[in-house]
Structures are given as C-alpha cells and as structure tokens.
Amino acid sequence: MQYLLLIYESEKNWDAMSEAERNKIFTEYMTFTNDIKTSGHLRAGDALQPTRTATTVRVRDGKASTTDGPFAETREQLGGYYLIEAKDLDEATRIAARIPSARYGSIEVRPIMTFS
C-alpha cells in the first residue's frame, strides 16, 4: 500500500531556531531520506516553502478567486511530505515516527486511494 506522510509543524518554532539547530535537523532529514530510499520505502518526498508563500484558489459560482496565504490560522502548518510504500499501517506509522519533525510537530498518515 502507499501512504502519504504529511508533516505538520510550527513555522514559528522553526523560525526561532538557531542556525546550528536547523542544520542538525536538516542532517537528520538527509539521513532519514537516504535510509528509506535504501530500504525501498521511498516513492517521493519534498519540503515546502513556508505558508507565507502560499496562495489559495477557490472557484465559486464559476468565478475563480485568488487570495494570499492559507485559509485558516492553525497552530501547525504543512511543511512537507513523503510518499512511501509500506506493507500495512503499522509499518507506515513506524516510518512516520522516524521523521525528525515527529519529535516537534505531528505526522498525518493517509493511505492513498486506489481506483480499480
């Protein structure tokens, strides 16, 4: 099965970190990504630019509107994702628990819907 691991964390915390702390986490991410690549679990993964760069698009009554930023202010923001292949939910959650941000923020594990 494929699962999308959505990484939520507080951008404020990230901004408040020192350069050394950020580098340490960055290195941890590199190691983790390499590990799941080697083990064959990784399908895709990216980090996202912060929400201040985000734009929201909606179409209402056939008319598109474009606004700045995400719709609602939340404590944690989507900061990145991994798409992985795992045997079952238990394997997926074990991998999710190894994502460095799991220690500061939270990881949402979502199975990919398959249409057959």
């Binding site: 099965m1 699962y3 795992a86 045997k87 079952d88 939910l89 238990d90 997926a92 594990v109 199975p111 819907m113």
Partner: peptide
C-alpha cells in the same frame, strides 16, 4: 480495510 490496519499480533517491541 482502507488504512491497512494489519490483522496481526503486534511485534514484540510493541
């Protein structure tokens, strides 16, 4: 079924 919760006795560590 959809989230793939395994039908298994968990591994020893868990």
């Amino acid at each position: 079924r959809d989230a793939g919760i395994p039908y298994e006795v968990p591994e020893a560590s868990q």
